[in-house]
Amino acid sequence: MAHNILLIGGHGKVSQLLTPLLLARSWNVTSLIRSPDQQETIEKLGQGQPGKLSVLVSSVEDVKCEGDAQRILEQVKPDWVVWSAGAGGRGGPSRTKAIDQDAAVAFTKASIHTPSIKKFLTVSYIASRRNRAPWWTDADWEGAQKVNNEILPHYYKAKVAADEVLTVLSKERFDEEAKKGVPENERFAGISLRPGALTDKPAGGVTVGRIHSRGDTSRATVAESIVEVLATEGARGWIDVLDGDEDVGEAVKRLVKEGVDNVEGEDFEDQKERASKL
């Protein structure tokens, strides 16, 4: 089936690796980019691919609320949405909040509230959580705390807030569709893909599941992981991924079969309370 995908943050490093992979599946991609200066770079990614590539120039910094995001969704009409945008540390705390939290939450809400959209995948990071994962070592937790509280405090606050909104609203829609008798594999899938420290190494295998918080993930592997997660029925929830030895596709299928969701250890009621305020 030819899916129509809105890729938000299309000029980012991961997105430029991801776009040809999506198109190679004969999926259609609308790449949302910030500046007309980026358009030629993106258009080259679609050359010789079976899927159709479109480019939409519209800054996510202008998305202040769900209605702003909804207007873009109505224009593109995707059935899957991938969020791979970010302030990238540029512009200070206010820009980080505007993009990584406010715009991300706006697109998350608008996507989940659009019945024709069946999947929303956000690229987060492995330490974006409030509580210690039950499988983490003391060193894992200390490392995550250092990143979140000392190195990237504003980014952490923005990302974890957006992750929580995705988690809460995805569950609500999933449960509503269950009550209506929608088969499980056809219900909405909200996905937070959570790599480690990003590198420019070639794509390779992965380590997934209940894994450590410390480690690298190549951007090329992140891109391949996104494709496999989107392509795998039943993939949803929080998926932690580091570089490793397991084939990406097989790893995702195993996660789904085993029912692993790395949101384990977080308090859903607390998430729900915080999400209601955004």
Rank of each mutant, 00 (worst) to 15 (best):
V248D: 06
A161W: 00
R132L: 00
Q145K: 14
P153S: 07
G196Q: 02
A162L: 05
S128F: 00
E269G: 04
L230V: 06
V248G: 05
K97Q: 13
L45Q: 13
T30R: 03
L23E: 11
A189T: 11
V241I: 15
K253Y: 03
A69N: 07
Q38T: 06
L45F: 13
Y156L: 06
S58W: 05
L169I: 02
Q145R: 14
A87Q: 03
V260N: 07
S15M: 03
L198D: 00
G181T: 06
I239E: 04
A161N: 10
L169Y: 12
I42G: 11
I42C: 09
L7C: 05
V57N: 10
D245W: 02
S59I: 06
L53D: 12
G259P: 12
Y156G: 06
L53M: 12
R173I: 04
G215N: 12
N149K: 15
I239S: 04
S170I: 08
M1V: 13
G10H: 02
G143W: 07
E66V: 15
T232I: 11
E250Q: 15
N262Y: 01
E142S: 13
V252F: 09
Q70D: 04
K180V: 00
D267L: 10
P78V: 10
E176Q: 13
K77I: 09
D267C: 10
V63P: 04
Q75L: 13
T167Y: 14
E40A: 15
V260Y: 11
V57R: 09
V123F: 03
H11I: 01
D37F: 10
I211T: 13
A127G: 11
K257W: 05
A24M: 03
L22S: 07
G204I: 07
D267R: 10
L169P: 01
G265N: 12
V248Q: 09
A197G: 11
V252I: 15
K109R: 15
G181I: 03
L6I: 04
S218M: 05
G249C: 11
S170P: 09
E150W: 03
E250R: 13
I112K: 06
L22I: 10
T96M: 01
G88T: 00
K179R: 14
Y125E: 01
N148R: 06
G46C: 11
P115V: 04
D245P: 00
P195D: 02
S213G: 14
E177T: 08
G86Y: 01
E273F: 06
T108A: 08
A24I: 03
W141S: 10
Q101E: 14
A110Q: 03
R173M: 02
G249M: 07
I42A: 10
W141D: 14
K44T: 14
T114I: 09
S58Q: 14
L169V: 02
K179I: 01
G209E: 05
S124G: 11
P20W: 10
E177W: 07
A161C: 13
K109E: 12
K44G: 03
N185A: 12
L230E: 06
R254V: 05
V60N: 05
A133T: 04
W141A: 12
V76F: 04
K118D: 11
L18D: 07
E66A: 15
A98M: 10
N28W: 00
G237T: 09
L53H: 12
